[in-house]
């Protein structure tokens, strides 16, 4: 926790240890859709092991920003660095190799899970390891089983995803992403499609993952999760970062009027 505190202040202040660049750096990420600016020049540093929660109203650009980090969305301009190294030479024109390398380092979990419905839970977790990392089937399935057990779903290995609850499906999706040994994990509203109880299962797995030191970027409407688990909370509106800081500060004493307005609307429900 104390380590995290230090990380957080470093990240928030944007100061970096000269020898050690932040694990993830976004520099002036700009995104336009047909002339509409969705993200205006967003810069953000994230240190290894840090958990950053993105909150804000719909349409603020939170998901778009997250999707720029693994290039599911191609930024119009800006730089994306991992461990101080640029990931894509020309921001708007990633090459196939650059995408492959980036996605090997960054895992992602979606609101809609996106599990493969035609193969078993075990194969869902094993197949990407075989195709992307070249692991043998045996090795991949052993690793898959280990991760499924870790998220509490070892007994579902042979079932089809459709036979699992939403919360279970999302935990499988987390296991599938972790199986590729990512350095950074992105969560795009991972509990928005779930009822509160099932969402709780997923949040528990995420909290545990955070405790292991995984770097996590989480777009969420779960304010209590952002408050409890994140090392830093980023409030976005209209394609900009309005305010960021320790969750106690952002939630307890927001500096910007826009943040106050949002939090009042959300927390008073």
């Amino acid at each position: 926790m104390i380590d995290n505190q230090q990380n957080r202040t470093q990240g928030a202040a944007g100061t970096t240890d000269a020898q050690k660049a932040p694990q993830l750096q976004l520099k002036d990420i700009h995104k336009e859709f047909n002339g509409n600016t969705v993200l205006s020049d967003i810069s953000l540093d994230v240190n290894a092991g840090e958990v950053v929660a993105f909150i804000g109203p719909s349409g603020a650009g939170k998901s778009t920003l997250l999707r720029c980090v693994n290039y599911l969305e191609t930024p119009s301009s800006g730089d994306l660095l991992i461990d101080g190294k640029p990931t894509v030479k020309i921001a708007s024109k990633p090459t196939r190799n650059e995408l492959m390398n980036l996605r090997r380092q960054v895992g992602m979990v979606f609101q809609s899970f996106n599990l493969f419905p035609h193969i078993s839970v075990l194969r869902n977790v094993a197949l990407p390891q075989e195709r992307v990392l070249g692991r043998s089937r045996k090795e991949a399935e052993e690793r898959a089983m280990e991760l499924l057990t870790r998220v509490g779903l070892g007994d579902k290995a042979d079932a089809r995803p459709s036979k699992c609850s939403g919360g279970q499906q999302q935990r499988i999706a987390i296991a599938r992403a972790l199986a590729l040994d990512p350095e950074i994990m992105l969560f795009d509203e991972p509990t928005s499609a779930l009822d509160p109880e099932l969402g709780g299962e997923v949040l528990a797995v995420m909290q545990e993952l955070a405790a292991t030191g995984m770097t996590m970027l989480v777009v969420t409407h779960e304010m209590s999760f952002a408050r409890r688990v994140s090392d830093r909370t980023v409030f976005m509106a209209d394609g900009r970062i309005v305010e960021q800081g320790a969750p106690e500060q952002v939630f307890g004493a927001p500096r910007e009027a826009r943040t106050k307005k949002f939090l009042e609307a959300v927390l008073e429900r």
Partner: peptide, 13 residues
């Protein structure tokens, strides 16, 4: 469409 995205994010060709 999520199937393409899901596979893409995993780095599948």
């Amino acid at each position: 469409g999520g199937q393409w995205e899901g596979a893409g994010a995993l780095g599948l060709s």
